[in-house]
Simulated scan of single mutants.
Amino acid sequence: MVNPDAQFERYSRQIFMDEIGVAGQRKINAAKVLVIGAGGIGSPVLAYLAAAGVGHLAVADFDVLEIHNLNRQIIHAEQQVGKLKTESAANFVGQLNSSIHFEPIAEKITATNVEALLRPYDIIVEGSDNFTCRYLVNDTCVRLAKPLVYGSIFGFEGQVALLNHKGSKDLRAFFPEAPNPEDAPTCDSKGVLGPLPGLVGSMMAMLVLQVICGLAVPKNQLCIIDCLNWRFSQITA
């Protein structure tokens, strides 16, 4: 049985915030969040949501950890190279916060299983590295009326948005169609500095917690982060 005094002490610094309080922390503890991808973006999202006490946290990823992932995928370690990312993610979360329920889902998201995977969760976080998955998850969230926290990275640029939340626009309002996969640049082909996905993932985790606690959130906006020139801008759909 969880010790209420220990729980209060653990989360006291967020409970002390007027916007969160005990009621907000209870919402966080009761929330169910699915993170798509345990990579550069998913790593900080998982870390901060686990630290905040999201009661039921899951990650879907079918990749095996490789040594080149470690410059940005901060929840993994050298000793776990060659293992499933979901396995090392579970190890990280278990050591950080053993009081929450963590569910590793070592599956590739497809048109066949996507609805069943997304349906049990309150909020979906999209941190995959391919457009096919992003649009599949987006369209499924629209069908299931699930809020979607979206993020992407490339080079020095990141994008963050809260989509499909209480009637707000979805990904296709900003980008109607996915680009041809052969034309889309990736971290594997163009590279990325590790702090960028850390920044994007942290912003995404903040959005998730704001949604859970019922705080004001940006609607119909895509935030563009240009780290090379230190510029933040918004596109409105």
Rank of each mutant, 00 (worst) to 15 (best):
N3K: 11
P4F: 07
P4N: 11
D5Q: 14
A6P: 00
F8M: 07
F8P: 01
E9V: 08
R10Y: 12
Y11E: 00
S12H: 05
S12D: 01
R13W: 04
I15A: 02
I15S: 05
I15G: 03
E19Q: 08
A23H: 04
G24W: 02
R26I: 00
K27Q: 14
N29L: 12
L34Q: 05
I36M: 05
I36F: 04
G37I: 08
A38D: 04
P44V: 05
P44D: 07
A47S: 14
L49F: 02
A50V: 08
A51F: 09
A52M: 05
A52F: 06
G55D: 06
L57K: 06
I67C: 02
H68I: 04
N69H: 08
N71L: 08
Q73E: 12
H76L: 11
A77W: 07
Q79R: 15
S88C: 10
S88I: 04
A89F: 00
V93S: 11
G94I: 08
N97H: 00
S99G: 03
I100N: 10
E103K: 13
I105W: 04
I105M: 06
A106N: 14
E107V: 13
I109A: 05
T110K: 09
T110S: 09
A111N: 15
T112N: 14
N113W: 09
N113L: 10
L118F: 06
D122Y: 00
D122N: 08
D122E: 11
I123G: 07
I124A: 06
E126G: 03
G127D: 04
G127H: 06
D129W: 09
N130E: 14
F131T: 11
R134W: 10
V137D: 02
N138H: 03
D139M: 01
V142L: 14
K146R: 12
K146F: 00
P147V: 06
L148G: 06
Y150F: 15
Y150N: 04
S152N: 07
S152W: 11
F154A: 12
G158E: 07
A161I: 07
L162A: 02
L162G: 03
L163I: 01
L163H: 01
H165Y: 14
H165W: 11
K166L: 03
G167S: 02
G167V: 04
D170V: 00
R172G: 01
A173K: 08
P176M: 07
E177G: 01
P181C: 10
P181V: 11
E182S: 14
E182C: 11
A184C: 12
P185K: 15
C187V: 13
D188A: 15
K190L: 14
V192M: 12
L193A: 13
G194D: 08
G194C: 09
P197F: 08
V200I: 15
M204H: 11
A205N: 05
A205D: 05
M206C: 14
L207H: 14
L207P: 06
G214W: 00
A216Y: 00
A216D: 12
P218Q: 02
Q221N: 05
I224F: 09
I224R: 11
I224V: 15
D226T: 07
L228S: 01
W230N: 13
W230G: 00
W230R: 13
R231G: 12
S233V: 03
I235N: 01
T236E: 06
T236M: 03
